[in-house]
């Protein structure tokens, strides 16, 4: 019998609350999932980021994949079911109800004005999240020398630009970034040993 790290109820309730309050699209949802994972100590930052990177490489909604992975890690298959149900049920229900009521609210100036406040806020949340996720990686890169720090920062920026300006496919961008970083390890030898045990 494996030892489960989190109760099913807590998994469901946490994702349910995330599904209810993440107004303004996926970026707010992602921010909330990251915050919950950090608050409950669900998975190390590096693992979280690795899941997110891998989630970009298979089809479908990325946040649903994160939710499946976190739920399964915390409580096996039942945990997976609790997490995804918690995330999707309230959001899907509210989306449907809002569609049904859309004709009533769509031209209310108040609703439009509120949305004009919320949408830039989700961009602000995304910037904060990028910083939270990127900082630990940049700190590690700095420990490996200035060249590595520049390379890491350059990779982040080039990926962002390729995606925004060239509309390159996320899968291609990620594979390029992985390959470049892998090649660079051969060129700039890190001062730190690369043995995973030394990372802990």
């Amino acid at each position: 019998m494996p030892q489960f790290r989190e109760s099913l109820w807590r998994i469901f309730a946490t994702f349910f609350v995330i599904g209810l309050q993440s107004f303004g699209g996926g970026t707010a949802t992602f921010f909330l999932i990251h915050q919950a994972s950090r608050r409950h100590g669900w998975l190390p930052e590096e693992q979280f980021l690795q899941y997110w990177a891998l989630s970009q490489m298979t089809p479908g909604i990325g946040l649903a994949k994160m939710t499946l992975l976190i739920g399964k890690r915390l409580h096996g298959w039942p945990g997976l079911a609790a997490a995804i149900a918690g995330l999707m049920l309230p959001s899907a229900l509210i989306t449907t109800l809002m569609t049904a009521g859309y004709a009533v609210v769509q031209d209310r100036p108040l609703v439009k004005a509120a949305m004009r406040g919320i949408l830039p806020a989700t961009i602000g949340l995304t910037l904060a999240l990028s910083w939270d996720l990127g900082k630990p990686l940049l700190i590690v890169a700095r420990a490996d020398g200035k060249a590595h720090l520049a390379l890491a920062a350059g990779l982040i920026l080039s990926a962002a630009l390729l995606f925004t300006l060239a509309q390159a496919s996320p899968v291609v961008i990620l594979l390029l970034a992985g390959a470049l970083f892998w090649l660079s390890r051969g060129i700039f030898k890190p001062q730190r040993p690369e043995n995973p045990a030394a990372d802990a």
Binding site: T27, F30, E46, L49, Q50, W52, A53, L54, Q56, I123, T126, L127, L129, S130, L133, G134, L137, V140, A152, L155, I156, L157, S158, A159, A160, L161, L162, F163, T164, P170, I173, L174, L176, A177, G178, A179, L180, F181, W182, S184, R185, E194, P196
Partner: peptide, 20 residues
């Protein structure tokens, strides 16, 4: 592990790109 680190850096770039 290096490949993976590159993936993560790329994923952060994508997140910033989405904001863009």
């Amino acid at each position: 592990k290096s490949f993976s680190n590159g993936l993560m850096l790329g994923a952060i770039g994508l997140l910033l790109g989405t904001a863009g």
